[in-house]
């Protein structure tokens, strides 16, 4: 007589039972897999690969030739690299003006009068437009023959200024153009922040005689800290990513005076001056290292917040 034994389903042999028992561990894996895969392939691995490429001489087509730190050695004596680095610092410092600028406009607009909503939207307008169009708009704004800037200067008796044609002024002109949308962005952050300011604290401070600047500094700004943090993050990133405006407004000129690292890297790796992928990657690595300081700081702040209950 044969005893028909049911196949013994062991716990770890796979099949629906195993899936069911481990579903709390499997589910996040399944949900994460596509996103993480994409992100690894297109973001994380390329970062590592760029580090690797920076040790090679490579024209993007032929064989790569390992040259160790040669690219970095060349960078240290490259005057164009130095100009780009200095310009990046200018961008970083001056771009931060967007934060007080945005706060100032937000304070100006934080009223409830008729039509204020429309005004707020229109003030925000420059941020929605692409940087390419902002670049074009400001190129014409600065134009020495018909630009609005020079028409205005002429009206008050000042000579024409060729902002983008003057190596001493061009970078500042581009930064000013970049500040236009960035101020709008910071403004909207602060408007939202101001909306959430605790009215009781403001009233209490008012009863204690706090006014204007003291009130702003000691009562309002501490409550706006989250908005300031985000404004700081997006402004720093914006400053280091600046590429579109430079490419549109001056294409790095005059005489290479408006180059920044991101633009110089593009020029070296892809433009008509030859495809120097390795050298470009080395420039990108330097830019990345600067950014890494800030990324570290951002993550550290976020991590502290995560640990708070």
């Amino acid at each position: 007589m044969t005893t028909a034994t049911l196949p013994d389903t062991h716990a770890d042999e796979g099949g629906p039972g195993w899936v069911r028992r481990n579903r709390m561990r499997l589910a996040p894996l399944m949900f994460l897999a596509p996103g993480v895969l994409f992100f690894l392939v297109y973001v994380i691995f390329p970062v590592l690969e760029s580090f690797q490429i920076s040790f090679y001489r490579w024209d993007g087509l032929g064989a790569r030739e390992f040259i160790g730190l040669e690219n970095y050695r060349e960078l240290s004596t490259d005057p164009a690299f130095e100009v780009s680095l200095v310009n990046n610092l200018k961008w970083l410092l001056l771009y931060l003006l967007a934060i007080p600028g945005g706060l100032f406009i937000a304070l100006f607009l934080n009223q409830t009068v008729t039509g204020i909503r429309i005004y707020k939207s229109l003030f925000f307008f420059p941020f929605v437009i692409s940087q390419v169009v902002v670049g074009l708009v400001f190129t014409w704004f600065y134009d020495p023959t018909f630009g609005l800037l020079n028409v205005t200067l002429e009206a008050i008796g000042l000579g024409p200024v060729n902002v983008l044609g003057d190596p001493r002024l061009a970078t500042y002109g581009i930064i000013a153009a970049g500040l236009w949308p960035q101020i709008a962005y910071c403004m909207i952050l602060y408007l939202t922040g101001l909306n959430a300011v605790d009215p009781e604290q403001v009233e209490a401070a008012r009863l204690d005689g706090a006014k204007r600047w003291r009130m702003l500094w000691f009562v309002i700004l501490p409550q706006l800290r989250p908005a300031t943090f985000i404004a700081f993050v997006v402004t720093i990133i914006g400053a280091l990513r600046s590429f579109d405006l430079i490419s549109i407004m001056t294409n790095g000129g005059p005489f290479g005076s408006t180059r920044v690292l991101s633009f110089y890297m593009f020029e070296k790796a892809l433009s008509e001056y030859g495809f120097r992928m390795g050298y470009g990657a080395a420039i990108a690595v330097v830019l990345f290292m600067i950014m890494l300081l800030f990324i570290g700081y951002f993550l550290w702040s976020m991590w502290r917040q995560e640990r708070m209950p």
Binding site: Y42, V43, P46, S50, R241, S262, A269, A284, M291, F298
Partner: peptide
């Protein structure tokens, strides 16, 4: 989060 802050240029060549 960190990947989102990365400057584009480091991704460009790869």
């Amino acid at each position: 989060v960190a990947g989102n802050f990365v400057p584009f240029q480091i991704l460009m060549v790869p």
